[in-house]
């Protein structure tokens, strides 16, 4: 049992008459990978957008490292150490790896960009994740493969000293070998003590990498199970709603 880093209790969110989150409880532990699964429209994205401060929750409480916090803006989230790696990556193809990893948080030396320090730190961050697939940190992102881009995007969160990294469908567009690389990276991220939330439709990936599996069904958290103590069929049953929660509020 790791220590709980983030705990959502009874969070709600509605868009007009539609209740997307109907009082969700969710818990993320340090050094663990928590998979968030659920069918389309179950509220996964809405839950994540609330955590990243992009779209604040309407009600409920969020506690971070035991303290109740307010998450109204992306800046608040990132100052707590919450980083989101989006599905569409958000990298600038015309810039190189170092420039992308530091985008928006460049280091400066005498008011000018401190390329040397940034290059060094980027190198260290990639090394700490045992990344071997990247040839040079000064490669342009346009010359990288999908898996390498995902690697850069994930390493960026490490560089920012993230405590919680949320990955939105990180393997959706990747081939077999690249998926393997990225999942290994996710594992190492957790091994470094970071709390990881991974959203995925691919249950094979989920079972390979996750410690805990949380299932959303129509805006309600129907299961929060240990990945080792459950089966694929059980998770699918929760996702499709054919199995109902036993006392999970």
């Amino acid at each position: 049992m790791g220590t709980t880093l983030v705990e959502l209790s009874n969070v709600t969110k509605s868009f007009g008459p539609v209740d997307v989150l109907k009082g969700v409880n969710f818990k993320v532990e340090e050094g663990k990978v928590t998979a968030l699964v659920g069918d389309n429209g179950a509220g996964k994205s809405t839950l994540i957008k609330g955590l990243s401060g992009v779209q604040p929750y309407d009600g409920g409480t969020v506690s971070f490292a035991g303290q109740e916090v307010s998450l109204r803006t992306p800046r608040q989230a990132s100052s707590l150490g919450i980083e989101v790696v989006y599905q569409d990556l958000a990298l600038c193809e015309n810039l190189d790896i170092v420039q992308n990893m530091f985008l928006g948080r460049e280091e400066k030396h005498l008011t000018l960009l401190d390329e040397a320090s940034m290059e060094f730190a980027a190198q260290k961050a990639l090394q700490s994740l045992s990344v071997r697939t990247v040839k040079s940190v000064r490669q342009k992102v346009s010359s990288l493969s999908g898996g390498q881009r995902q690697t850069v995007a994930i390493a960026r969160s490490v560089l920012r000293n993230a405590k919680l990294v949320i990955l939105d469908e990180p393997t959706a567009a990747l081939g077999v070998a690249q998926t393997e690389q990225v999942l290994n990276l996710v594992r190492r991220l957790a091994d470094n003590g970071i709390a990881v939330v991974i959203i995925s439709h691919n249950l094979a990936d989920v079972f390979e990498v996750a410690d805990r599996i949380s299932v959303l069904y129509l805006g309600q958290m129907v299961a929060h199970v240990d990945a080792k103590k459950t089966t694929r069929d059980e998770v699918v049953a929760y996702i499709t709603g054919s199995k109902t929660p036993e006392g999970v509020a």
């Binding site: 958000a90 600038c92 810039l95 985008l103 000018l112 960009l113």
Partner: peptide, 24 residues
């Protein structure tokens, strides 16, 4: 080449959405 402003010009030109998400 060497200022934040210059870097952000390239970033916005390369991918405005990525630049926006990076807080630019």
């Amino acid at each position: 080449d060497r200022t934040l402003f210059g870097r952000y010009i390239y970033a916005v030109g390369g991918n405005p959405e990525a630049a926006r998400r990076a807080g630019i």
